[in-house]
Amino acid sequence: MVGDDPNCHHYVNNKHKKCKTVGIESFNINVPESATQKELLKAGREFNNNPLVDAFNIQSPVPDNFNFNEAVAEINPEKDADGLHPYNPGKLVLQEEGPLPCAPAGIVEMLKYYNIPVQGKHVVIIGRGPTLGRPLSLMLSMKREYANAAVTVLHSGIKNIKDYTLSADIIVCGVGIPGFIKPDMVKSGCAAISGGITWQGKKLIPDIEADTGEVAGWITSRLGGVGPTTVAMLLRNTIIAAKKRLDISGLS
């Protein structure tokens, strides 16, 4: 963890709690905001070189004086719990096995769990970032089970967002703007998934306005939506890394 952001503390503490629950030993290195980029890279190398560490991640966001991408690129790709090292999104593009970014992988699991049809459907993803929109667009457009969809990626360069969302069978919004998707922007019966949240004081506000549930067929719950699946996927990536190191198959 880098710096002292209270939300980051919350997320990191939650990850430690979940690790304890499932029997994974975990610890973190705190890099203070006053540290240098070199010190952050050194912390990453410590994890890389520690034989007791199977996987780790760098909690984002990091303070502005640090280069997150450079730090992620220093992670041993075999220990990349977030699936963000450049090597691993490359494997995703090539449809090869590797750690998947946790938030989009969790959303795919959610679609499976609730039996939301994906094959041949129109999925609209709002947001094109490397942790959600971009990898999710790859996952859902692949030719495989629980994918094979027509995927449209929308972003800040698109003015007429509603023109696209109204034809979507599945909408995933990950822009971090509270209530960005409103009831008049979705078609009846669609699945509306909020991949972005905003803290307003101590309250979490999703990207999808609650009233959208009057039109949609499915909507993520305000609390306990995509977040828990993201953490679960992080631990799944960790255990897969451990098994890979020990050359044991299963759970992939």
Partner: peptide, 30 residues
């Protein structure tokens, strides 16, 4: 609200149970 709610909690529990089982197997193997 007419929409059904999608909670991530049961999915996370299912995945974490699998992870817990696998972690136990790995520990048993030393």
């Amino acid at each position: 609200m007419s929409a059904k709610e999608m909670s991530g909690i049961p999915i996370a529990e299912k995945i974490l149970n699998e992870v817990k089982k696998e972690a136990g197997i790995l520990k048993d193997r030393g």
